[in-house]
């Protein structure tokens, strides 16, 4: 991540000089920083709401119940996390919210999962296998109904926007399954103590 951060900024500055866009850069920094805070602050309310709801779900045993339903799968995916951990149920909740396209609900629950996984993590600075698996599932963006895209299509007068649902579902499933398999394979090769920088640098370009 250090190298990616460095290269993104260094390359930007070099290209800005070449393209004579240096004055745009200052603007980009200002706008980017501003946008970050806006995003974070817009999250506070909805975050509080879902964290409140999830807490109730935990207290009344719903999270445990969902966790039990999916144990066969999570046993394999998250073999380092005790299966009675709250995280397992919340992983299922977060995944369902994502699949339904409820991003606003998925993010707070997902962040809660990360916190719970962190408790099981030995090295607090380094990602655990469980975290990488959870994020692999997340970044693959499995979604049953791509609601936003459908809305845009409908907006421009697309007659039958729902026809993209099936192809999208096929593609998203392929990406999702590959992400899980890749994460499973890499966790054997890429142990926590190994140096990660070189591989990431190459990979980025």
């Amino acid at each position: 991540m250090n190298y990616i951060f460095y290269f993104l900024i260094a390359i930007s500055i070099i290209f800005a000089v070449i393209n004579g866009r240096l004055e745009n850069l200052g603007n980009a920094i200002l706008k980017g920083a501003d946008l970050s805070v806006k995003i974070a602050f817009s999250l506070i309310g909805i975050m509080a709401f879902w964290l409140g709801i999830v807490r109730i779900a935990e207290k009344c045993g719903i999270v445990k119940f969902i966790a039990k339903l999916i144990t066969p799968i999570t046993k394999w995916l998250f073999n380092e996390i005790p299966q009675d951990n709250e995280a397992i149920g919340n992983i299922a909740l977060s995944f369902s919210a994502n699949a339904l396209g409820l991003t606003n609900a998925a993010t707070p629950i997902g962040l809660k999962v990360m916190e719970e996984l962190q408790e099981e993590n030995k090295d607090k600075k380094t990602a655990s296998n469980a975290m990488c698996m959870f994020l692999a599932m997340n970044t693959a963006g499995f979604q049953i109904i791509p609601a936003t895209v459908i809305a845009v299509l409908a907006g421009i007068g697309y007659k039958n926007p729902t026809e993209i649902i099936v192809p999208t579902l096929i593609v998203t499933s392929i990406a999702f399954l590959s992400a899980i398999i890749i994460a499973k394979l890499l966790q054997k090769v890429w142990k926590p103590q190994t140096v990660e920088k070189e591989v990431k640098g190459v990979n980025y370009d």
Partner: peptide, 30 residues
């Protein structure tokens, strides 16, 4: 667009919230 999630954003936010700085293979996977 419908089949993707923004890998960099998700990793930054999720790892950031708990202070993880070494992502290991998470980025490559994404």
């Amino acid at each position: 667009v419908g089949s993707s999630e923004t890998t960099f954003y998700v990793l930054a936010v999720y790892f950031g919230s708990i202070g993880i700085t070494k992502y290991r293979y998470a980025l490559l996977t994404g």
